[in-house]
């Protein structure tokens, strides 16, 4: 690996396999993510997309293979290195995964207290409030997650993932449970991340999100990466296997709808 490649490469999965309850979920998955890249992982339900994301983020162990972040094997990080990794890589969960016994404020404040000890409590509260407000969360920050809707939980979870302004953000189904207003606000926040050059790896089947943000399309089917190309060439590809063909057809339909909407607006 050249020095140039080593510095550009932020995340690498090498021969990852994972299983659960005796059934294989991922089989020999390899992929790389460069700094500033925005990767959309798509594919049918149950294909192993979320597991892939969690293994890449070091949240689930791989049965075999290795995941590297900035050249270091995530599975063998020491305590300090692990803290550094967690500070530099945020994770937005599919179902929110908020800490139910903590207030919404504490759900955002805990990462700040750990990784930004120089911040005072009022500063932590202000940062948390500002971030949630930018995502359209207007409820009291003193409430517990149990009182929130699924969409609000998702927003708080995404806010928690980016509160430390990480270099790399993993998003598991970021648009799920969000109404259109919330989705627009999420897009605005992701736009900001894009402008900052944040690397994003998102598992999603939302064609709008993919068309808007993804630079690369990865299709996962039956636990394998079956398609991994830049978005520019994704729509032009021919002779794809069924899962990739279905994803690309959906993206093409979405692109066509976008084009017709644009024509309609011009009229």
């Amino acid at each position: 690996m050249s020095a140039e490649n080593a510095s550009a490469l932020l995340l690498e999965l090498r021969g990852i396999s994972a299983s659960s309850g005796g059934s294989e979920i991922l089989e020999d998955v390899s992929m790389t993510v460069e700094r500033g890249d925005r990767v959309a992982v798509m594919g049918p339900s149950g294909s192993g997309k979320s597991t892939l994301l969690k293994v890449a983020a070091g949240l689930e162990p791989a049965g075999s293979g290795h995941a590297f972040f900035d050249g270091r094997d995530i599975a063998t990080l020491g305590q300090r290195e692990e803290l550094d990794f967690r500070k530099r890589a945020g994770f937005g969960f599919q179902d929110g995964a908020l800490w139910e016994n903590q207030t919404v404020l504490n759900n955002l404040a805990l990462p700040l207290r750990i990784h930004r000890p120089e911040l005072s409590e009022p500063e932590i509260a202000e940062r948390s409030r500002a971030l949630l407000s930018s995502l359209g969360f207007t409820d009291s920050l003193g409430v517990r997650p149990a009182t929130l809707s699924m969409g609000e939980r998702k927003i708080v979870s995404i806010a928690r993932a980016i509160v430390l302004e990480p270099e790399l953000v993993f998003l598991d189904d970021p648009t799920g449970h969000l109404d259109e207003d919330a989705r627009d606000r999420l897009y605005a926040v992701v736009d900001k991340l894009v402008r900052k050059g944040t690397t994003i790896v998102a598992v999603t089947n939302n064609s709008g999100f993919v068309r808007r943000f993804a630079l690369r399309l990865v299709v996962v089917a039956n636990g394998r990466v079956t398609y991994d190309v830049p978005m520019k060439v994704a729509l032009a590809a021919e002779g794809l296997e069924p899962a990739a063909r279905s994803v690309v057809a959906r993206l093409k339909r979405y692109a066509e709808r976008d084009r017709l909407d644009e024509i309609e607006e011009r009229r």
Partner: peptide
């Protein structure tokens, strides 16, 4: 156990706790 099922443990790990 409830925290495991709700992925709260993973969330703690994800922020370095």
């Amino acid at each position: 156990a409830g925290m495991v099922v709700g992925h709260e443990i993973e969330a703690y790990i994800s922020v370095g706790v």
